[in-house]
Every structure is written in C-alpha cells, then in structure tokens.
Write a protein that binds this DNA or RNA. Structure first.
Length: 532
RNA sequence: GGGCCGUUAGCUCAGUUGGCAGAGCACCUGACUUUUAAUCAGGGUGUCGCAGGUUCGAGACCUGCACGGCCUACCA
C-alpha cells in the first residue's frame, strides 16, 4: 500500500505531473522514503501476514500451534483399507481413527467443509460438520489454512459419490503454515524454484514425489540383489590425497588441523580394489562422487555411483550380472521390464544385445577405426565424413567422439558394447592375443551410458606403466595436480586376484526408469548458482 | 566459455503499434448440509529480475548485469 509508483504518487498527492528531471528526482526520493518506511511491513506479503494473525489468535486461545507430538492410529492408506474392511463386514460399526497430515485442499459447502489431507502414504478426504463441532474445535477449524499440518480423529464413512471420508470429531493443529502453497491445478512449473525449493515440488507435483520414491526403491533393490549374491557393502574415503580411478577434474578442499589439501573422490575404484587385495572377494559401494566438470542434462558435479568388484571373474561374467541386476531391479520396482523413455519403449529384460565397439562404430558411422591406427589418419577419415574434429584430441578421444556422436544415440534398447582400445582404458586388462584391446564394456540404454566395466588390471608393473603414460599426457596438457597413486600400486604389488569390476551411474539408471530427460530431475537438491 | 530464449501478483500465465498493470487458482467478504479443479456474488493484493538510457510517456525499445532453460563446448 505504501509502495506507490510515480504515477500513483502523483495521483495520491494531487500533484500536477511535470516532466522535469527535478520532478522525477523528487518522486524518486519520495518513493525511496516510502519504500524504507514500509520495508519492514511489506517484507511479508498479505497472505503471510493474515496467517500470522491467525497464528496469534490461536495462541491467544491457549492452543500451542507447534505442539510436540501426535500419535496417529492410521496412515491415510491404512484408513482406506480399514474402511474397505469395515464395509465388507455387514456389521458396519465404524471405529474412531486418528490421522495426521497436510491440508491440501478446502471445499466449503455451507455448513459442511470437505478438506483433503495428505500424508506420506497418500490422501484422504476430511469432512467437518460445523454444527457438530465443539465451540473450541470450530474456532480452531475456522483458523485453518491450506498447507497447515493437522491431526484429525473421527469415524470413516463414504459420501454419496463414494469418496472415502473421515468425519472429523476432534482436531489438533500440528504446525501452522505461514506460506501459501503453489497452485493446485498447474502445480509448480518454474524449474528454478522446483530445484531450489524441492519441498514445494514434492508437495505440488506428485510425479516428482514418484520419481524420488523410485530412486529410493532402485537403490534398495540393488543392495538386495548384491547382498543376496554375497557382496559386502563398504564405505571408502571421500577425501583423498590423490584423486584416481577416472580422468575427471577433482574438487579440492583443505584440512585445517593437518594443514593438507585433499581432493574429493572422482571414483570409488582404487579403494575398492585395495579391498580385493585385503581379501574381500565381493565388495561394493554406493556412494557420491564429485567431478569438477561442466554441467548438462546428463552431468552433475556430484552424482551417485555403484561400483562392485568380484574376485575370480572376468568382464563376461560382469556382463551377465549387470543384465540380471538391471532386469530384476526394474521388474521389482516398476513391476515390468518395459519402461517408456522419451518416445521409445525400452525393454531391460536380460539378456541384452552385445557387440564389439569396433563393429558398433563400423555399423553406425561406417568407420573401422582399427584401420586408422594413428590420430592423424583417423582425424582425416572423420573429416572426410564432415565431422568436426578438435585437432588437440588424441586417438582415444577421437574414438570416444565416434562413440558419442554415432553409437550412443542409436542405442535405445539396452546394449553391451565391449572390447575398447587399451589407450582409453588405463585400469583394464588387455585382451589375450590382442595387445591394443582391453577387456572392457559399457552398457547403453535409451542413449544413456548406464554402466562401465572391465576385467581389472592386476599386474602392478603394467599398471605403473599405464599410469605413467597417462601422467605424461596430462602433464603435456599442463595439469600439475595429477600424481600417481603410489599407495594403490603398492597394494597391487602384494597381489590382487583377477577380478571383474562394474560401475553403474545410479542417477542415469533412475532417469531411464522414471522417463526423465535431465539428471537434475532425479537429484533431490541439484547444484545451482547461488542467487543474489 | 559461446549462441538462442526466458524472468510480470503467493502459483500458472496473458499483456496488441510505447499510452491508466490483468486473467484463472490461492487469498478476503457473503450465500450454500455429500463437495472433490465444488458452485454463485463481490474484492486486485504488483519495486513488471536488477541498474542505467531513449521518450511527453517504457512491462514493451536500447545498453550492461544477475539468475534460469535449451543447444554447443568441456567431461571415461
């Protein structure tokens, strides 16, 4: 009310509008003055102020609007089941139940009001007959708002239209809501707001809630699958003196007391393989890893990775396990192995199609990269297909480019692409008789890279050689932070059993199952730039 | 990092050629005893992202900035 535009200011003060800069400056000063005067009052919008008034009114009647506990007898879901049971018996003796949750809608109908109550299990309709409520309950009811969290008890019945309903006899306010909820029909659409205030997204958009339930169930099902097969879940350090196991840029941090810089881990791999050395046969970790790289619909600076390592098996065995795991997890969580993803239906049922990387690239780009063993040769061939090629890319990166632009987008149904060039797989064992090929595979579905796995390199001398080559390449790119993980090499020197390792991007798997195109949709609180 | 687009009421969105800032939901007042996007009658609640500029006049046009989205680049 105090915040007037210049036009309104002119109107309200009966001024004759002038065009001069002095007049404008004067208006500005006056506006600023009003603004400062009213700032305290206007910080809360109208609705929040009204609700604060209700809050005070409730308090003044001796009711604590934020009490400590409310022991409900049923969830909304249990209440629905109870009503069905009640109705099945001819003796329909309704018992009193108590429910708790958030009010999400209000439909007043004269002396009856219908409200929706939502809890973690679902939703049920409440009904208040104003003439049947006690004076105190009626007063409290009249100060309720959509968004408030309440406890309500009474008897269950069904309305004329068949809606399961609780006729409320007694009412408890459990938390007064001071902010209005997003619009009930369109929900919350502002992407920025949905991420920053995810709780509103969860309240307003049931699909968002569903996505994160699936995420939770997927992780639980994976744990169950691996535990049943004798895998042991472990936890390894996030803070590491040397960030290895992948080629990504790490985040750095600092330990005060030790006065030492640390990296946040970029992979789980090297510590899990130390545990194979230590004698665990089957280990896995589901953990957050951090990569200081660009963000996109498929990349996020922190994401969740499953890595598992099993001694005495090779990548062929891992392929089979992966197929079975994804297939079973999907069946268990979604109730089917067929999921919609974009315009496609992806069937994750095992077994999956398998083909070599060489054949896959040949099939989808027409280039047989084996016949172009040098970076220059391959680059020329790619240019002849009018592919734009970064001249700084080495041979391995050019092959990766071919995979990314030709192979991945074509692979909608789950496919295992195996046998990768050694030069792009420094931690994988070379294939017998094929020096340039590593026993490595990636699984792709819906065009998303879901998993990466290999027969683990356990020859310490060969591993050192590969690390050194990698380091040379990195130092060429003027990256000084890269060091060789000597401790890991020492562990290998004690002897690591032959093993098959697997990495699964949990976020991307959840994207696939929940038909989400952006990784941020499956991360509860995605990283955003700070506002203001 | 580059390109394109966006930011208007608590929410979802209109806003024409530069001419008094407007709809639905939510909210407030009233009616209504089985509603369910309840309905009906009334009420607009706003620093038009921020800062400048052009203009008699800017939500709109120009410049810069912030935040976001998509594409691209980077990224095992």
């Amino acid at each position: 009310m105090c915040l007037l535009s210049r036009r309104e200011l002119v109107k309200s003060l009966n001024l004759v509008p002038e065009k001069s800069r002095h007049f404008r400056a004067g208006c500005l000063a006056l506006q600023s003055f009003c603004y400062i005067l009213c700032k305290m009052a206007s910080r809360l919008d109208r609705i929040a102020q009204q609700r604060r008034q209700k809050l005070e009114r409730i308090r003044s009647r001796g009711i604590e609007p934020y009490p400590y506990v409310y022991h409900r007898s049923h969830t909304t879901k249990q209440a629905l089941a109870l009503l069905n049971k009640q109705e099945a018996k001819s003796q329909a003796k309704a018992r009193v139940v108590s429910l708790a949750g958030r009010i999400t809608a209000n439909r007043p109908m004269g002396k009856i009001s219908f409200l929706d109550l939502r809890d973690g299990a679902g939703k049920i309709q409440l009904c208040f007959y104003q003439n049947r409520l006690s004076e105190e309950t009626l007063a409290l009811f009249q100060d309720l708002d959509i968004g408030d969290i309440i406890g309500a008890s009474g008897k269950l019945f069904r309305t004329k239209s068949g809606e399961p309903t609780l006729e409320v006899e007694s009412l408890a306010l459990l938390a007064k809501s001071l902010q209005p909820l997003p619009e009930k029909w369109h929900g919350l659409a502002d992407v920025d707001k949905r991420y920053r205030q995810r709780y509103l997204d969860l309240i307003a958009n049931t699909e968002a809630m569903g996505t994160f339930r699936v995420r939770s169930q997927v992780i639980a099902a994976i744990r169950q699958f691996l535990n049943q097969r004798g895998f042991i879940e472990v936890e390894t350090p996030v803070l590491q003196a040397s960030a290895g196991g992948a080629l990504a840029n790490p985040f750095t941090t600092h330990h005060q007391a030790l006065d030492q810089d640390f990296y946040l881990r970029i992979a789980l791999e090297l510590h899990l393989k130390r545990l194979l050395v230590g004698g665990f046969d089957k280990v896995y970790e589901i953990g957050r890893i951090f990569r200081n790289e660009g963000v996109s619909t498929q990349h996020h600076p922190e994401f969740t990775m499953l890595e598992s390592y099993e001694a005495y098996v090779n990548y062929q065995d891992v392929m089979t396990m992966l197929e079975e795991m994804v297939s079973e997890v999907c069946q268990q969580v979604m109730g089917t192995t067929k999921v919609r993803f974009g315009g496609d239906t992806v069937n994750l049922k095992a077994p999956w199609k398998r083909l070599t990387l060489r054949d896959a690239v040949k099939k989808h780009s027409g280039i047989d990269f084996v016949t172009y063993p040098t970076a220059d040769g391959l680059r020329d061939r790619m240019r002849s297909l009018k592919i734009e090629v970064d001249p700084k890319k080495n041979w391995a990166k050019l092959v990766d480019e071919l995979i990314k632009s030709f192979v991945k987008p074509k692979l909608i149904q789950p496919t295992i692409i195996f046998d990768y060039p050694v030069s792009m797989s420094p931690l994988a064992k070379t294939k017998r008789d094929e020096e340039r090929v590593a026993e490595r595979f990636q699984a792709i579905a819906g065009g998303l890279e879901i998993a990466n796995a290999y027969t683990e390199l356990n020859d310490p001398i060969e591993q050192r050689k590969r690390f050194e080559e990698q380091l040379k390449e990195r130092q060429g790119a003027d990256e000084e932070r890269w060091t060789i993980d000597e401790d890991y090499l020492l562990a290998l020197e004690y002897g690591m059993p032959p093993a098959g390792g697997l990495g699964v991007g949990i976020d991307r798997l959840v994207m696939l199952l929940t038909n989400q195109a952006a990784i941020r949709e499956v991360i509860l609180f995605p990283q955003l730039r700070e506002k203001e």
